[in-house]
């Protein structure tokens, strides 16, 4: 598998009270477990099964993902920003790996 590299787009700054859009993408095959290889053997499931978003350490959004989510899962959502701080994003892989990315936001 190619190296897993999460990508996140968050505005660098916002006015207090603004609702900002956050866009996330992670390269991952999201192998569904329903496919077979060329010899007819089932290809084991391996997906990102959970995504979490935290702001200053507090979880405010999460997603349970199933094999029907496309490969290289894209998730976008919103956050109301009342103070400057740091977003943390975490992707949980079926194999136990956790991929993490952080982004700061300032008040304008």
């Amino acid at each position: 598998m190619a190296r897993i590299r999460p990508r996140v787009r968050v505005p660098g700054e916002a006015a207090a009270g603004d609702v900002v859009e956050i866009k996330t993408l992670i390269n991952h095959p999201m192998e569904s477990g329903h496919r077979k290889d060329e010899d007819g053997n089932p290809i084991p499931r391996q997906i990102i099964n959970r995504f979490e978003a935290l702001f200053n350490g507090q979880e405010f959004f999460s997603v349970d993902l199933y094999p029907s989510v496309s490969s290289n899962p894209y998730i976008s959502f919103f956050a109301k920003v009342d103070e400057a701080g740091e977003f943390t994003f975490r992707w949980h892989d079926d194999d136990g790996s956790v991929y993490e990315e952080t982004k700061g936001i300032a008040l304008s």
């Binding site: 702001f55 979880e59 997603v63 199933y66 029907s68 496309s70 894209y74 919103f78 956050a79 109301k80």
Partner: peptide, 23 residues
């Protein structure tokens, strides 16, 4: 399998809106 995704929101989202891509 019928499940695709379940989004969990809080007031901090500011807006009950989310996007993804599905099979």
């Amino acid at each position: 399998s019928p499940r695709v995704a379940q989004f969990h929101f809080t007031p901090m989202n500011g807006k009950a809106s989310a996007s993804t891509r599905m099979r």
